[in-house]
Design a protein around this nucleic acid. Structure first.
Lengths: 177, 177
DNA sequence: ACCGGCATGTAACGGGTTACATGATTTT
DNA sequence: AAAATCATGTAACCCGTTACATGCCGGT
């Protein structure tokens, strides 16, 4: 499952430009399960267009640069359906923040607190972003995805708030076993 | 933060072989925030050894192949501390399962249910794995990491169980807004 | 005057995965 | 007899990120 599939999939939700697709997975409520940079999205759209899996229409905007609006074709729909037929690969996560917390012995307390606070702040931001009411009507399965993100972020925030002491208390009291 | 840093960091927890490091991030309680394959770990260890950031000792075992046990050197400790000084990059997640759920319109109900069930099962497995009591004494910050994983997995499982209907009910009843 | 947001792209570089190769031993 | 686990390693390949390049418009 590569970025081409991601772009194709995004376009089943409606027309969009490369810029908009990027925002969807960088800032939007769906940022928690996938993301991609311009350097992969624009070339992907180029190839999809070449293979006629999508169409492109240039749209002039006032006060802003033109944009290229892409839409999926029937052929693209078919290819997408085919690509989605295989079993999904297991999740791949890479969290440097958690790695640093895990390796906390090797960093000083000051920095550890910075990492912790930054991580917590990032979750609060993500939660806020995923929680802001959308203007559009949301389909049930998108609602499911959004709610899933909310649930995860909330759990993370709560846990971090309640267990900060485990990490940052100088007197490392241990729970009696 | 690359796999070399990961290996170096792992070795601050104690000596280990490449095989053991892989298991730590593939099966162990820390599988949720990072992982790496042999194809990256073995070369990484090779380079670290070449740079004298780690040492290697071959250990014969009965009934099993020999293994190469690596340990971090003072120089390695220094390099690690240095590498951990920068601000951690934001988390990178790639969940094909959630992407498929998000694109549920493009797959048939039967497969969607398979994806859902598989995803839920994988979370249950992970939770079980992260919850099994360790034989070793755990440092507070490792405890924090383990607890974090538990909290996230639990939240995911609960959410999925309670909202399966959002995704799989044929009668897509919507909540009144 | 400058910065941030909108908008599209490219090219080099690197990093890691996948697949292959090998082999002993234990479990089924 | 086959499959799974332990154990190490290599090499090709590919995908994606980073950084660069460009430019307009609106707000401060």
């Amino acid at each position: 499952m590569d970025i081409k599939t991601l772009c194709l999939g995004s376009l089943t939700l409606g027309e969009a430009s490369g810029y908009e697709i990027k925002k969807l997975f960088e800032e939007g409520p769906f940022a928690y399960f996938y993301h991609a940079s311009y350097g992969s999205i624009y070339p992907a759209l180029g190839e999809l267009l070449k293979n006629e899996l999508i169409t492109m229409r240039e749209e002039a905007q006032d006060g802003r640069p033109d944009k290229k609006v892409y839409a999926i074709t029937p052929k693209g729909q078919e290819v997408l359906s085919q690509k989605l037929k295989k079993v999904p690969a297991p999740d791949k996560i890479r969290s440097e923040s958690m790695l640093m917390i895990f390796l906390a012995d090797n960093i000083d307390a000051r920095q550890l607190e910075d990492v912790f606070d930054g991580y917590l702040a990032s979750y609060r931001e993500k939660l806020a972003c995923v929680s802001e009411p959308s203007d559009q009507e949301i389909e049930p399965h998108c609602q499911f995805a959004v709610g899933f993100g909310q649930a995860l972020y909330s759990a993370a925030i709560t846990y971090m708030e309640e267990n900060k002491n485990l990490l940052l208390e100088p007197s490392q009291q241990k729970a009696a076993q």
